[in-house]
Computed example of a mutant assay.
Amino acid sequence: MPPKTAYHDALGDYFAEHAGISPYNAYTDRPAMLELAGDVDGAKVLDVGCGAGHYAVELLARGAQVVGVDGSRTLLEHARARVGERAEFLLHDLEEPLNFAHDASFDGAVCALVFHHLTHRVQLLRELHRVLRPGGWLLVSTTHPAADWRHFGGSYYADDWVELPLRGSPFSIRFQRMPLEMFLGELLAAGFALERLVEPRPVPRLREVDEAAYTKLQQAPSFLAVRLVRP
């Protein structure tokens, strides 16, 4: 059975197109995460939940060697079409151990807007700690708990699983709400040290594309993004 946490078939096709142009993905989350990555020239990077290869393209352009993993065949087809042979892409259920990777075999890892979809997050974090070399870095982005609180209501401290309809489409995505202390607590308990935390804002060029979205994203947070290091 295909992993429940991945985007399959028509949802995968929708996400592949949407992630390339969305104010949230293309103009807010991805620029912030790439800024957190810094200089990746010569680094071997694991793209965890690589989707349609949008991060792989950017990391390759900056000189990284990229291995992308995702549980969706649909999205990996898009990634290979976008990137070609310049990166290695693997079909892998992120709820399972990263048994394809040796200890200390990566310089860095990117986990963009995937963490909150997963059930076995603690296991994944332990695996990332294992496959990163000492001093290696991990970037994680997730939905902002304040944004989830505003949208779904109830208690800010709720950690329930929710369904979010994707506006303008017949699809929805399922993820777990997490207050800030839960999100950071899981990362730190896995042995990582926090270097930076940012609340991504849209890049200025979004204003020329969609001024309403730019104004909205400047006023209310949508995501959290962190850079951690493996001691």
Rank of each mutant, 00 (worst) to 15 (best):
A213C: 11
G135E: 05
L166C: 03
L132A: 08
A56M: 05
E17T: 14
A112D: 07
M182C: 02
V69Q: 01
S222E: 07
G63K: 01
H120I: 00
E181M: 02
W137Q: 04
G84D: 01
P170K: 12
P200S: 01
I21F: 10
E163D: 15
F183Q: 03
A61K: 06
L124N: 11
V229G: 00
D47I: 10
L128A: 07
P134C: 02
A147C: 09
P97W: 09
G168P: 13
V45F: 03
A189V: 03
L132I: 10
H120S: 14
V66P: 05
V66D: 00
K44L: 10
P231I: 01
D9E: 15
A61C: 00
L124G: 09
E88F: 01
M182Q: 13
L98P: 07
E88S: 02
S222R: 14
E35G: 00
N99L: 09
R73P: 05
V162D: 10
E85L: 05
H117V: 05
P202L: 08
W137S: 00
A52R: 07
L46E: 07
D210R: 09
L46I: 06
F183N: 00
A43W: 12
A213K: 09
D103Q: 12
E35R: 15
S105G: 10
H92K: 08
G136E: 11
E195Q: 15
L118A: 11
Y157Q: 09
V122Q: 14
P170D: 06
I173E: 14
L94H: 07
G84L: 00
